[in-house]
Structure formats: C-alpha cells, structure tokens
Design a protein around this nucleic acid. Structure first.
Lengths: 234, 234
DNA sequence: ATATATATACTAGTATACAAGTAGCGCAGC
DNA sequence: GCTGCGCTACTTGTATACTAGTATATATAT
C-alpha cells in the first residue's frame, strides 16, 4: 500500500461507503461506478485516498469483478489513478487538470451555442428554466441556481442534437465539479452573473449571432477559472 | 447470437485476428484493446460483426477477463455495442455519429487554434512537418500527407498544453477515420486544400488573430463532412 | 549506526467456474 | 398451414482462485 497521507490515514472507508445499496437484479458494475463517482466528486473520497479493490468489494458486498470494472471506468475518467501491482488512489486535484477540463467544456459548449445560433431554437422550452433561474439568482441561492443551470446546459445540448458531445462534457465536468462544491457559496453574486450570461446567450442565439453566442458561452464556462486560482493550493 | 447480416456471415474471425501477438510480460487488456481498435477502424471488423467474448478470447489465446476489459473500453469509445445477455457487435457506421464526431473534433481543435493564436507558438518546430506536407500535397500523395497531417495536429495540441483534450480527440477520431480509409484517394486535390488550410491557420496564429485561427481550423476539420454525405449509404 | 539483503503482506492482473438471461429452433396442438 | 409452448445453445455478468509483482518492515552484516 502507498504511504498514507495524514488526511487519508484518518479516513474511514466504511463511513465513506455508507448508503451504497446495490440492486442485484440489475448489473452491478455501473451501479458501483455511479456510487464511487458521486463520492469522489463530492469529496467523500478525498484526493489521494487509497482504494483497495479487495477492501471496497468486501465492504460493498460484491465481488472484485464488477468493482474492478467500475474502477477501470473511473480511471478512464481520470478520477482514479491505478498503479499496476501497487494500488489505486483517488486522483489528486491538479490545477492544470481542472483548467484543461474547463478548456474542453468551453470548447464543446461554445460549439453548441454556435450551432444553436445558426439553426435557431425553441425558446419556449427554455423559458420555465430561465424563469426559475432568475428567482434563484436574485435570492443569491446558488445551490438552487446550480441545479437549473445544469438543466439549462443539458437542454441546449439536446437541442443541438449532440448527445455524445454532452456525454463527454458530463465526463470532463467531474473535474470541475469536484472543486466547485468547496467554494460554491463563497462568492456572492455569482448566480446573478451566470443568469445574465444566459440571457445574453439567448439574445445572441435569437439574433443568429453565432460568433457572439459562442463567445458568451466560452466566457460563461471560463468564469469557473476564477475558482481555480483561489481554490487550489498547488 | 444476434442474427447475422449476409456480410457478417461470410466473415472469417481467424483471418481478421491474424497477426495478434500478445506480450505476456506486459498487461494483456490494453494490448487486446489496441489490436481490436485498429482492426475496427480499418474495417477488418466490418460494422455489425458479432464479437463473442469466448470466441475471441480463445482465438487470441487469452482468458475472457482481459479481453472483456478491452471490449468494455471499446464500448466506451462507441466502437462496440454490448447488449447484455445477448451479444456484442461492432457498432454500425451511423451518419449522425460521424457528423457528431466531426463536430466534437472541430470544437476542441478550434479552441486549440484559438489558444495558440492568443499565446503564440514556436513556428520553427512546425516548419519541417509543413515542408513535408507541401511536397506530399503537390504530388497529391494523400497517404503520405495524411501521416504528416496527424503529426501536425498532434503537435499543435502539444503546444497548447492540453494532453487530455488531445486524448479525447484521438478517441472520437476513430469514428471519423473508420470511414476515411474508404475514400481517401477518391477526391483528388484534397491534400493541397488541406495544406493551404494549414498555411492560412499559421498565418492567423502568427498575426494573433484568435477568431480567425479558430474559424480556419473549424472549417478545416469540417471539410471531412464532405465525405460523410457521399460516403455513407444510410 | 548504517546500509543491504530478505521476508512478508499487501497490490492489481489473469484464469476459470458458475449464474442468469435471451433468442432461435423444433415440435405439438389447433 | 399456422400458432404457441418449451427446450437448447448460446450470450454476457458475476464470483472466486491463482499468479506475479511491489513496497515496507525486519533482520543481518558491515
């Protein structure tokens, strides 16, 4: 086993895996994947945590086979680092990695915005979400706003008809979200700024301003960079 | 087993897997992954081919475990469709999928071009590749040109310092390359046009024209769309 | 005391056995 | 001839046993 960091030494694996419930009538591997992924993103498994396949499998009461499949998938996402014959650890939060994740998300979502501006959209479908966002934003209720923000972006991706692109965004977004929770309430007025971005984005789309829409979306996503500079120590 | 298409019925699995050599001193799973991936992309495993884990494992003389891991990874790439308790097949070549792959690649690489224009690059490193491209392009030698084109784009990604973004491009590019080989020599003058794109791209980067660089790159990648319309039946 | 060899207790990678589910074929009955 | 039930032969999913490699601790020699 790799040397434990002080933080990881105090880590309680049983506590971190509390609430894991497996439905034996469905495939186990994807369920374990989801459970672990959620816990890594919300930092119940802090970066650097050692994950022994045997130990986790025993605690979750499943065999190593589906658990291993989940670990491999998480390694593919870059959330777990597997060192052959040595051990697996939750990937450290690397500033460069987060910045690159934001870069990729901005690239894909800007392209989505561009396409929507070129093709036009059904604004009616977005209206209720946008209204809910406005309420949350004016209350500076970032938690609620964040939920509708997710919906908003997802709906745009659906309208652009690029499901796999959205899947990639979801995958890469894990690296961004993993550090977002730490600071989400720290910056006041953030929701309002984001809401205004959305309004400006829809303006551009409505006017068929493809480059403008892409630029607004790019800046909107890139605003997460502000967190990176202040949020990560390394 | 899923019903066989006429094409797949005549398929010879042993022939398709010829040349698979496993180095038992290294991990087997990634080796199998590479071997299968290569064969799917160059259509030695035509779309729709049924892949039985047991059968392929036996022919490759490995156990199901590492082979299964490879299959799962390929399913993650969208190159194989796994139907639980039914069977796995090589993913059909879907026009929408290819178009979306091009969309994603264009998005990421356009963002790379933009970043390079903002930051500036070391043109000297690109010069030899560009020179080799010019020679191949003027001979209309698409095969050679294609090799240098790959190098060119990879080097740009390296310069932009986004290794994971490039990894994603590589992954998604499989869907594009799978249909490229069929037509690569069909359109004459293609290399020259691509070469001119590269020159214009470097012009924009040199002048710090971020939007221009992004636009050139976007159009450059999107030119692959011309193949899609004529190349796929469905 | 320090450096080096070695034992030990882990790790992930692989092989194999078993379970559960699906599709297609064939036969019985209508 | 046609319909429907059931058997059979596959498939992938899971559990477990085994292999091989690594890091740490311990003992030993210098």
């Amino acid at each position: 086993m790799p040397r434990l960091t002080p933080e990881a030494a105090a880590f309680d694996m049983h506590a971190a895996l509390e609430g894991v419930a497996i439905d034996r009538s469905r495939s186990i591997a994807p369920q374990i994947y989801r459970e672990l992924r959620t816990r890594i993103i919300d930092n119940r498994f802090p970066p650097g945590t050692a994950l022994s396949e045997t130990e986790v499998a025993r605690i979750c009461d499943v065999s190593r086979t589906p658990l291993r499949a989940a670990i491999q998938d998480l390694a593919g996402d870059g959330l777990i680092i597997v060192k052959p014959q040595v051990g697996s650890v939750v990937a450290p939060q690397n500033e460069a990695r987060v910045r690159e994740a934001i870069f990729i998300r901005a690239a894909i979502e800007a392209a989505i915005a561009r396409r929507l501006a070129e093709r036009g959209i059904d604004e009616a479908a977005l209206a209720p979400i946008l209204a809910a966002q406005e309420v949350a934003a004016k209350r500076d209720d970032y938690r609620t706003f964040f939920r509708y923000d997710e919906e908003f972006h997802q709906l745009l991706a659906q309208m652009a008809d690029v499901p796999h692109a959205w899947q990639m965004v979801q995958s890469i977004k894990a690296h961004i979200d993993r550090q977002r929770l730490r600071l989400m309430s720290s910056i006041s007025g953030r929701s309002l700024r984001a809401f205004e971005d959305h309004v400006r984005l829809l303006d551009c789309i409505r006017n068929g301003d493809a480059s403008g829409a892409a630029a607004v979306m790019r800046d909107h996503i890139n605003s997460a960079l502000e967190n990176v500079q202040t949020g990560l120590k390394g």
